[in-house]
């Protein structure tokens, strides 16, 4: 059993035992990302917050039946997506899995032979540490993530931020791996433009 699996197993045991600190740990790791992802699907922040809260209740209520066939995060995000689908179906809508965003900001970057018109330059000022230290930079990055089309946003959050296994991301979002890679790439290209504005 890997260390991550062991840690997760222990976390599940603590959740089953009603350990509040364990729930807080899980909540802190996932809540903001869940709201951000769900807002992309339901297109309403308040509804997303409500669905995420319902998801947490379902998670805590059913944690005893979690069998570990997926990761704990995979299980949680699947519950969230099912709740979003149910709510939208009830309202006569469907989950918005918007895959637009074909314009990746590079359309006009090349000449007819595929060479750069304006050569990109190294970012001297930007480091992950600076992003974390500066609240305004953090907010800038989060705003850029929230501006992504829902499908790109979901893949970026699950794969690029939560570090979920590729196959699990594909299963949750019902997409194939090639599609997932394209969505992740497009999301990064959009964020790259947002970060470039900070230079």
């Amino acid at each position: 059993m890997s260390t991550n699996t062991q840690d997760e197993h222990r976390l599940v045991e603590r959740l089953v035992a009603g350990d509040r600190a364990a729930f807080e740990q899980l909540y802190r790791k996932n809540n903001a990302a869940m709201v951000r992802m769900c807002t992309g699907f339901v297109r309403n922040h308040a509804t997303a917050e409500e669905l995420v809260q319902e998801t947490w209740i379902a998670v805590l209520k059913n944690i005893g039946s979690f069998e570990g066939r997926s990761s704990l995060a995979g299980w949680i995000y699947t519950i969230l997506l099912n709740k979003a689908r149910s709510r939208l179906k009830r309202d006569g809508r469907q989950v918005s899995f918007d895959e637009s965003g074909e314009d990746n900001g590079l359309q006009a970057a090349f000449d007819g032979r595929g060479r750069w018109k304006d050569i990109p330059e190294l970012w001297e000022e930007l480091t992950p540490e600076r992003v974390v230290a500066g609240r305004s930079v953090l907010e800038h990055v989060n705003a850029a993530i929230e501006a992504l089309p829902s499908a790109q946003r979901a893949v970026l959050i699950l794969r690029g931020q939560q570090g979920m296994d590729a196959a699990e991301v594909c299963a949750i979002l019902n997409i194939n791996e090639g599609n997932m890679r394209v969505l992740l790439h497009r999301a990064r290209l959009a964020l790259r433009i947002a970060l470039d504005r900070l230079q």
Binding site: P128, E129, V132, L138, N142, I157, G163, R188, L195, D196
Partner: peptide
């Protein structure tokens, strides 16, 4: 730049 974008994206989640 793309590597930095990937790393910054992760860092934002870790900061949260």
């Amino acid at each position: 730049q793309l590597r930095m974008t990937r790393d910054v994206t992760r860092s934002v989640a870790e900061a949260e």
